[in-house]
Structures are given as structure tokens and as C-alpha cells.
Design a protein around this nucleic acid. Structure first.
Lengths: 140, 140
DNA sequence: TTAATTGCGTTATGCTATAACGTGTGCCAT
DNA sequence: ATGGCACACGTTATAGCATAACGCAATTAA
């Protein structure tokens, strides 16, 4: 019985979606989440997407662009830089064999990309970094 | 009248798709490409997707994961590291206002991500780096 | 020749995401 | 308190992205 790690101010739907994602080992698509929540009264994709929008906005859920899927943020509180979930860009390593996802953060990469942007007058809003390949276990 | 910059060994469909992408300022979705090629006999999405698969495999077209769209590679021949289009990871800055896309390459970022992967025994197959935001002109 | 590979065309289908409508609820400035 | 606003919610319909599965034709290798 894992006690769900929900933030206080989430609505019922947001909490349900976040809990499903938190308990999942692998990333989940919006429709997979929907199916998991039918028993809780979910009927339509929008219910999921609206919750996901809010959760990603809060930074406690991430969207994996190359997978069209979502994961709960792996950072338990302010692990490194900013406070809470306000940290910078997060990167992901995605195993194409077992589906496992590792979330990490690299200051140096962040800075380099930031420098490039500054040099061009480009104002970054959201940065996606995803490495797809094989994890140690699957590459063996 | 721009002479298309097609590689020699492309099939007719691949050449058509590549030329459409090359001439486009902005990234294009597969369905947009399809519409542009109806006059050339294209009828179904698969004709486009199959060509795109080959072109991305050759490295002369890139897929923008956060946009579900495609662009012709901006590197005119071996601009920096490897020969031809065999270079490492490419990064993109995507303006959410005007749609303009800048392709660039950063060794340092590449190395950092490579180091992280090596340290974890992760074997990278394809890496996606996309910065979404506002370009100089649109941020003003 | 035979078999393997690759590309092609077509139909059908599945997955991902949002538009547009209306409802209800809480808040708070008037 | 009441009107207005912001926000979450539920529902239906639709749009947009991608692939499965079939069969055929051309090319190449054994």
C-alpha cells in the first residue's frame, strides 16, 4: 500500500491521473491511463488530457515527446538545483527493449544549450532531451 | 528555379518527398506533404511515411518529435565532424511563433550525454534535442 | 531458375489530441 | 447577496498522426 505522493492542491481527477502514473514502472499513454481509470468514472480522453496538462504545468509529470507518453517526475523534491519542481531541463534515457525510463539532469548540457540560445537571441520555453537506446541489462 | 539537391540513389517517391521538404521553410507533417504531392500521384499516407522512413534513415531528413513533423537536414555536406550525414546528434531550436527551425550541433552537449550513457551502460541509438521557444525576431 | 529483398499501391484500422458546447462551483469585489 | 470571473468538469464529435496487412512488380544473389 504505497501512500500516494500527491501535492495538496490537486483536484480529484488530477490526483487519480498522478497516482496511476506514479505507480507505473513504465511511461503511459493518455489512453492507457484512461483505461486504468474507467473504474473511477473516467469516460473520455479529455478528462485525462486536462489533468495531464495541469500536472505537466506543475512540473510533476513529464511528457516524453518521442513516445507520446507520460511519466511522473522522478525527482523527489528539490534534489539538485531549483526549489521543488522548478528545476531546469530534464533529460531522459529510454530503453527501447524493456521500456524503462531514467530521468536525469545535467547542468553542463543545460548551460551549453542556454548559451547557444542566448547567442542567437532565442528565448527557450521548453527543452526536450531524450536518448533512446538500450539500457545496461538489455544491451548485454 | 532551385535545382533539387537530391542524392543519386533515391527512388522517385523518395525524391519527391525530399524535394518538397527541401523547398519548405518550415517543418511539414506527413499529411501536409501528402497534400503537396497529390498532383504527382500520391494517394495515401503510407507512400509518404515509407519515403520519410528511408530519408531519415539516410540522415538527410530529420523528424521533430515535439511537432510530429519533418525537415530536410540543414547540413550541407560534412559541415563539421563526420563525413556526409554521418555526424552525431543534431539539436533544433523551434520558434513557436513563426515556426522557423534552426538546426545545430554541439560537441560538448554530445559528449556530456555520451558520458552519462557510458557511465550507466546505456547504449544510445537515437538522441532527440529540441528547444521550443521564441526566435530573436518573435521575442522582441 | 529460384529465392530474397526492396519498393510500390490500396484499403482499412488504430492511436493521439483537441474543438466546441454546456454545467457547476468557489471566490471576491461591488 | 449578487453579479462576474476563473476554473474544473463531462460529453460528443472531429481532427490529426501512424501503421497493419494484403498483393504486385522490379532487382539482385545464389
Amino acid at each position: 500500500m504505497n501512500a500516494p505522493v500527491s501535492s495538496p492542491s490537486l483536484t480529484k481527477n488530477q490526483t487519480l491521473v498522478f497516482d496511476v502514473l506514479s505507480r507505473s514502472e513504465a511511461p503511459m499513454s493518455a489512453y492507457t491511463i484512461l483505461d486504468k481509470l474507467r473504474d473511477h468514472g473516467f469516460r473520455a480522453p479529455l478528462q485525462v488530457y486536462r489533468a495531464l496538462d495541469k500536472l505537466t504545468e506543475l512540473g510533476i509529470v513529464h511528457r516524453l515527446e518521442s513516445l507520446n507518453a507520460f511519466v511522473a517526475c522522478a525527482h523527489r523534491e528539490s534534489t539538485c538545483c531549483g526549489a521543488g519542481h522548478g528545476h531546469g531541463t530534464v533529460a531522459f534515457a529510454i530503453c527501447e527493449s524493456c521500456g524503462q525510463v531514467s530521468e536525469f539532469h545535467d547542468h553542463e548540457v543545460d548551460h551549453r544549450l542556454g548559451d547557444w540560445a542566448r547567442g542567437r537571441g532565442f528565448r527557450p520555453a521548453k527543452t526536450t532531451i531524450e536518448i533512446r537506446g538500450l539500457c545496461r541489462g538489455c544491451a548485454a
